[in-house]
Nucleic acid binder design. Sequence first.
DNA 1: TTGTAAGCGTTATCAA
DNA 2: TTGATAACGCTTACAA
Lengths: 343, 343
Amino acid sequence: MPRRLPTVSDVAHAAGVSRQTVSNVLNSPGIVREATRARVAEAIAELGYRPHASARRLRTRRASTIAVRLDPFAGGISGAVLDRFLHALTERAEARGLTVMLYTATDADDEIRQFQRLVDGAVVDAFVLASTYYGDPRTEWLIERGQPFVTFGRPWGIADLADPLHFWVDVDGRAGVAEAVRRLEADGCRRVGFLGWPAGSGSGDERRAGWAEAVTAAGVDAASRAALTVESEESVGAARAATRRLLEQASDLDAVIAASDTLALGALIETRGSLRVVGFDNTPIAAAIGFSSIDQRVDEVASAALELLDLVGRSEADDPRSHRLIVPDVIMREPGLALGLVG
Amino acid sequence: MPRRLPTVSDVAHAAGVSRQTVSNVLNSPGIVREATRARVAEAIAELGYRPHASARRLRTRRASTIAVRLDPFAGGISGAVLDRFLHALTERAEARGLTVMLYTATDADDEIRQFQRLVDGAVVDAFVLASTYYGDPRTEWLIERGQPFVTFGRPWGIADLADPLHFWVDVDGRAGVAEAVRRLEADGCRRVGFLGWPAGSGSGDERRAGWAEAVTAAGVDAASRAALTVESEESVGAARAATRRLLEQASDLDAVIAASDTLALGALIETRGSLRVVGFDNTPIAAAIGFSSIDQRVDEVASAALELLDLVGRSEADDPRSHRLIVPDVIMREPGLALGLVG
DNA sequence: TTGTAAGCGTTATCAA
DNA sequence: TTGATAACGCTTACAA
């Protein structure tokens, strides 16, 4: 049976000081005399004392807890990104004395109901939203109530990107894809296509824009660009069909950049590895099969998200620190090895 | 700015009763008169009152929180299983008024340090360990200190499977694989091989045993069994090499059952889809590519884990309820479609 | 620099 | 059935 945990009083008694002195040693070590501090520290170590989290939270009115929604199994391969983000966030949060708690929700309304529950119960003091989309009602709800939050993903659409009330971190997919195009060109590729999602998703449109930007810079005209791009839903089957269309439109295709590893896998299977393919997210499947991919650097995103939370409420209007755009890594893997179907 | 949250006192005042009555309405509705209960309930709804989580935890000495380690080994394709398990657990925990919090650890010792931190700070009142192995020091530590926990995975090795102090849920991989063999045989397969992990991992050995059991029942002798099985590390590349060896040993191979989807993918790629392949874990990649796989039914595991936690400390010696073995689902997918390389 | 006193919001105990 | 009182363990005034 769990023994009774030591309290500040126990420590105070053992060290021969008062309770507050113990508290001071823990929270404002500066104002306590060195000799006393050492004696108290020793008693703390001796007893294995740790502040009771709930008592502290009650008193300080800070939960030191951030809530993250765990998506209902997004299907597709790319769920792994959120997984890695969550891991990074947990690690970084621990280092800052924060706890990460999870909740689930079936849709945005349900999620707002969860916000309500967690806020009213003083369970958390900030939210991390792992993806945002056009007209997202969740951020609006949080802003209206002055609830601290940060999003992984820009406030797409209406909202002002520099809105000082909306703290966000995002990955610069545009820059990442443009860089991937340049790398492929440096490797000798002349006709680089793009396999993207249907227009309308913020991040998807950005990724396509990065491709367009880079191939345009390389001298590809608008008509050729139209022939070099094609759209697909997020599934391997749809990606294979789209890849067939792309090959019809541009028979001299060298390489393809895809908006996700799922799409990249479809392209790879359809072409039996005869094409250079770059995916997005650098999921385990890209590593396992051995195709190139663009890594979102979720560690950086997680760190930035927590730094931003520190600033919430403290930043001035138009504070540039209220958001952060991270440049992804392009991970090139040896061509021809993918799927082992070539050579 | 977050307004001050209503407290029991506010509700009591609004309903014209004492604080205690409000508390009773919430925690022991039975002992309060219906009229009073209704009046209090109305006041609660009106004010949008919710008990302050930390205050309640302080007073009741229950954190109502379970801790789960988020593995750094999200790598490999199979990380997706823990992901799904975590989601299911979060969902079920919510329904029981429990919170799931995360922690990370680099190894078992580090994890034990985390146990210490979370226990001493009264942050959690139970742990869920998502995987176990031979000679696992973590469970020993927890048992010694009477800390409630449940493992997803049997206590492999030394420990008595029926040890009433070790609560566990696991998936019966042996039964699942045996069933998969029978399904393949029903489909006309005559020579079903097994692509497994090196001996020594509890779950891997069980899966191999299930295959051996079923093919033996179908009349395969020991010598043939030896030719039909091969070992591989958990990577696509190693699985491809192992599959080549398997084909040399047993050229008339019909189908292969793999210990994981990662291995299955390797077999599939190596044989370019010309073999029936069954994986394990039913990861998104199996669904995306379209090969058969054995599903661990993590929803059931999560439910069972929480039910078991209710029993911790309350069960008698040799209580059969202290563990639960769940039969997995065999998900057969249309043969030949996998990878689209056939037909 | 240290100690005293009060109170965070809840529930357990016990008396009315 | 309801209400007063007293903790739970901590920190933040303020006083010594």
